[in-house]
Design a protein around this nucleic acid. Sequence first.
DNA 1: ATGAAAGCGCTAACAT
DNA 2: ATGTTAGCGCTTTCAT
Lengths: 335, 335
Amino acid sequence: MKRPTMKDVARAAGVSPMTVSRAVSGEPGVSPDTAARVEQAVRELGYQRNDNARSLRQKDPRTSTIGLVVDDLANPFYALMARSVEDEAHRRGFLVLVGSTNDEPRREREVIAAFTARQVDGLILVPTNGGHGFLKQPMEAGTRVVCVDRPAKGLAVDTVTVDNRAGAERAVSHLLGHGHTRIAYLGDRFDIWTQRERHAGYLDALASHGIPEDPALVRHELRSQPHAAAALAELRALPRPPTALFTTNDLITIGVMDGLGHPDPIALVGFDDFPLADRLSPPLSVVSQDPVALGATAANLLFSRIDGDRSAPRSVVLLTRLIVRGSGAGGGRSR
Amino acid sequence: MKRPTMKDVARAAGVSPMTVSRAVSGEPGVSPDTAARVEQAVRELGYQRNDNARSLRQKDPRTSTIGLVVDDLANPFYALMARSVEDEAHRRGFLVLVGSTNDEPRREREVIAAFTARQVDGLILVPTNGGHGFLKQPMEAGTRVVCVDRPAKGLAVDTVTVDNRAGAERAVSHLLGHGHTRIAYLGDRFDIWTQRERHAGYLDALASHGIPEDPALVRHELRSQPHAAAALAELRALPRPPTALFTTNDLITIGVMDGLGHPDPIALVGFDDFPLADRLSPPLSVVSQDPVALGATAANLLFSRIDGDRSAPRSVVLLTRLIVRGSGAGGGRSR
DNA sequence: ATGAAAGCGCTAACAT
DNA sequence: ATGTTAGCGCTTTCAT
């Protein structure tokens, strides 16, 4: 039972393969009568056009396939983004190949190489911190690229991010506004661009309120919930412990939660909203970003490039939103 | 700047295209000296083999691409599954096309048709409730199919599920063991196989404890958190309200949470574990299933089929686990 | 409206 | 070890 080809359909319908091609692709120049006979043969044989072969020969060399390369598809944030990209692609008749990098430059390269070898028309990329020179030649050959969530150093392509720095600044200012002066920063890997931005926003807020930075209150490289919990315990053991916390992603926020109430209450604002954040005690105040909007914006940019837009690379910054729920007011001298 | 082909590389290296083919694919019969010259030309031109063209001509007609079709990629459960499938695929040098169906048979067909038109070697499918006759011809033509999370009615393929019925039975028995006799069932769309199974498990537990079923306590079609919350309110207004709840997915569990404490406390066991379920008040007792294991198992089955396994379709049932955290003990006469 | 010939980029099969 | 020929399934181009 091999896959039938146009030749088989042509034989069954008593026409030439070329006529089948036209009929199957809905092109003009086929009489209604012939079209019906072809359709009949297609149904009988269960014929389906081989789109790989098709795109090999077509004048317009598109495969109608894009690649989506994220840090980790299992991360709800990227899952939402992926779904959003998929919907935009589906609307346009495009398919989506997905790959996770684990933030490893080597795996990123492997995945992208496999994608371009399949002739994807474009790539939506959450870039790792590694170099991206390997993208130059595919891009010259026509592969369009859009970065999302973070920019790729030295890569001049459309990029969609959120205002990480301003969002962090607002979060920390909120804590400052409640009278806190000793605000700890709990962050993830500092080699991730978003983390550096959020740290800069933290410093911005302190500076604009005339609070000197205390290095003892800054922790980077918190890569898991236990790391975050341990960091909080250390901070608590300080001679002058913080009265408030700024956590830079949901994992850290959650990791730190259990230690919020005792011995003294500590205020908290976290980056990233997540389900149930409003139902915890205390309800968590967070900076929220919209992964669906990120994905849709990136996809729209990519498709306009695929459709021929050759203008200069654009940089789109989406806004974050501070959601005040209560955890930012507790602790400190305000209570 | 068109994409260079083997011909271009051949010219640059002063050899025939066939030699380039052999060199690039690492096949024997190329002198080290020639291989080096080819490699040099490849680098200079930024050549990359066109794998679509390759698979068109190869004896073994594989594309090393599989399709993953889920209900909704944004759902954390399927996102975890997808990541797990992707990892298995990556290990074997396969790529993954993804598509969401929204549980709509029509979109399922569209997505699968687009996948098979790209000659995917196999499909991992969370089937909708619609018919799957359209899969027959691709399968005869060599496309392997594995169902996951739920079976496809009338489709004889490998299927990986969890013991939904037994898991539900255990959950409800747990509540019965705490003295509850009026246990409500709050379920999602009854046309979803997993929901019917969980409902059957609910009835099993009642029956084995000699408790008659009370139709007033059974609610289906709860498709969102507000629906679930409203259903609980109605149940509470009953002359003889339930003292415990069995909820059949995380959305319903969460939707119902706010109404758990007042006016009377109600016990709860939910199907599906989710992040922070242990940190809510009360901590939620749940039946947990492992999406990563589901994905990995399905992928392994699929790849063994792709590798030539022609044995009869298998059905793999993974076990769920009852996680007792406290919410199952409250309410009822046990307090 | 239909078909024949050529060729997309690659590799199987058969030379040499 | 290397090259030549043919052809995968399709569409372009140019007939008719």
